[in-house]
Amino acid sequence: MSPTHHIPHLLGIEGMTEKDITPFLDLAESYALLSRSRNAPRDVLQGRTVINLFFEDSTRTRTSFELAAKRLGADVVNMTVATSSVNKGETLLDTASTLNAMHCDLLVIRHAQSGAPALLSQKVEASVVNAGDGMHEHPTQALLDGLTIRRHFGRLSGLKIAICGDIAHSRVARSDIHLLRAMGNDIHLAGPPTLLPNALGTLEGVTLHHNIDDALKAADVAMCLRVQRERMGSGLVPSAREYFSLFGLDRRRLALAKPGALVMHPGPMNRGVEIASAVADSPQSVISEQVEMGVAVRMAVLDRLSRMKNPA
């Protein structure tokens, strides 16, 4: 295998600066408008091959990447690999050599193990896009969250953003924190101590709360993260009803945020656990818009990586 250091990847948000992030958001914004008017340019990725390599079940993200690639005219292949047979590094590298031999251009990977996309990126000649790895990063989710916020406030800086839920097990939280910090926001994380690592409190611009009300006070954005049912009764949280009672985003708590504060959720939601239906379905909710921006952001990511790899 040839050295691949010149190949551009999107493995995570950590280390990216405002200058790295903004071009993705700008391009995504234009793709959002083109998608709405059904005028996406079909020739951008014409002749390029995108493989969606999903080692973990996902409908939303995989569909979003597939649509993004198709709207830009790429040839798309979806590979969903049963989780049970592939959590060994050896198999992952074997898969890498196989894919390499097929000469694909862009490889979108989701894997249950943190660091799997990074490992793969060392062994393939395609550009690798991390579509979520373990509890590590989910960079396109952070970009789409950033874009959604920027469209509403006209800026992505100087905002008070509350992120509530299972921070400890969330790759979305990590990528969002990196991105929102890089852009210069005031981040407030809330959750029970079992789901909120103390270590995050040492980051500049990040404040931890075990009382969600404190995190939400005067917030511009209230972002809920999914608290998986598996966490309930596992020793981390006693029950869904206790979680909702102490940490669920309901109308009373949302009223603590600024009037018109955005309600966000990366999905899939557990209604009545981390978020009340009345809040999820309220006019303040931009949850559907997040999904829409997801396609636009992924178009922008595939487009930019492809261009960086093959300069015109």
């Binding site: 009764g233 596992s234 981390l236 029950s239 206790e242």
Partner: peptide, 14 residues
């Protein structure tokens, strides 16, 4: 813990 059995956490907040 539930049932004071030493396993799953009881609903101590509630």
């Amino acid at each position: 813990t539930k049932g004071c059995a030493g396993g799953d956490m009881a609903e101590i907040g509630l």
